[in-house]
Write a protein that binds this DNA or RNA. Structure first.
Lengths: 223, 223
DNA sequence: AATGTTATGATTGGATCCAAAGTAGAGCTT
DNA sequence: AAGCTCTACTTTGGATCCAATCATAACATT
């Protein structure tokens, strides 16, 4: 897999995400090849990858179409990530938190604390949070004893809106987002607490609930 | 994706599963193409699919290698299936079991009862069980309200030994397998009971535990 | 002798060509 | 006029060709 080849996959993923190709729309190899300025070969390879990722699905006997996602699908994808990250957290709690891991998690907790300490949110804080949030989640999932859980989550995250760092969107209402991140930070801290004490079931449930933060908490915190 | 093309993927998957290509071994396009009697093009496409499935992984900068799986990976894959099927069962319990679904599940329960009624196991019963077991699981997962969970399970099942129907192996010790299936049948019945009563948490936990049946129950039942 | 550099060989990625399968449209038959 | 069939065109799948990249080995230089 070359870099240019990867770029075809990600560029196509981006186009689909942006709605350039409408859900349900039949998508032809030649059209995409011309659009991206490459030959059919890398496009065909990319179609395979995107089919496995779930963004494309076979259209009848012939070719592919953009898969459409319902509200229920998005909710479900978030729940899937929740149970998988919950599984990772539980396993981690059961196997015991090592000194180094504890320290590493503490780093991201601390960064989160610092970010929120000033009492409000700036535009550029969003990226900072997204970064530390990603590290926090990756640290837990990557320490669960096998790459299998991480792989399953990675595949699930290919679905739009399923990834953990697709929380913050609304940079208009930064005060609302601030409260959301405050809650997320608390949840992170609780998870670490549970992990430290070997409380597997609690860690699992906290992590599950944490997955919903980008989904249902808007109404709750939105006054 | 043509039929011949699918066949390259599945034939290659079979060869890897059988150990024809050793884990960790570098796997070349030309070698596979000659082995299967096709050109490099379908092989390259198949490599993409198998990479996404997790059976192949990139070997350095160039080409692919057969991924190796540890004991921990197998255990983890089974747990992943457990939590995902558990999620499906819980959602199903929460949304309520429809009349038709109840009837359909009852069919597979009944077939299981009939299979085990005679008090022992024959060689050909293994396939029958495998079939009804697959239907039972697919019915639950397919009714969870979104194909997303099923997709995640399907991708996970590509890993060797993770699939639900890889329970029965030992056709030498059919008496031992009989008791295992008896337990599996009971678990199926308990799951349906929980689903009927809308007991989401119970259904989830039963389904989770059920995933382990091919893994840890051998020692328990093996005297 | 060891290390760095260059050259050659192996292997993958991209483009194009050809064949096969499918779809749509037009014309014919009933 | 409706339905069926045949044909032509579109699109995908497989094979092959060419270019680019990586690895290995040999040779030269310090």
């Amino acid at each position: 897999m070359s870099s240019s080849d990867k770029s075809v996959v990600s560029r196509l993923r981006k186009l689909i995400g942006e709605g350039f190709y409408q859900p349900g729309e039949r998508i032809g190899e030649v059209a995409v090849a011309e659009q991206l300025g490459v030959s059919r070969t890398p496009v065909r390879l990319a179609f395979r990858t995107l089919e496995q990722e779930g963004l494309l699905q076979q259209a009848g006997k012939r070719g592919f179409m953009v898969r459409e996602f319902t509200e229920a699908d998005v909710l479900c994808a978030v729940e899937v990530r929740g149970v998988l990250e919950g599984l990772a957290a539980r396993r981690l709690a059961e196997q015991g938190l090592s000194q180094e891991l504890d320290a590493e998690l503490q780093v991201w907790i601390q960064k989160g604390k610092e970010l929120l300490a000033k009492g409000f949110l700036e535009e550029r804080d969003v990226d900072t949070w997204s970064e530390l949030n990603r590290h926090f989640h990756e640290t837990i999932v990557g320490s669960a004893g096998s790459p299998v859980i991480g792989d399953a989550i990675a595949r699930n995250n290919h679905l739009p809106f399923a990834a953990a760092d697709s929380i913050v969107i609304d940079s208009e209402a930064l005060d609302r987002e601030y409260r959301k991140l405050q809650l997320a930070q608390t949840q992170h801290e609780l998870v670490v607490q549970a992990l430290r004490h070997g409380e597997g079931a609690r860690a699992e449930m906290l992590m599950r609930e944490h997955a919903f933060i980008g989904l249902r908490y808007g109404e709750l915190l939105g006054l």
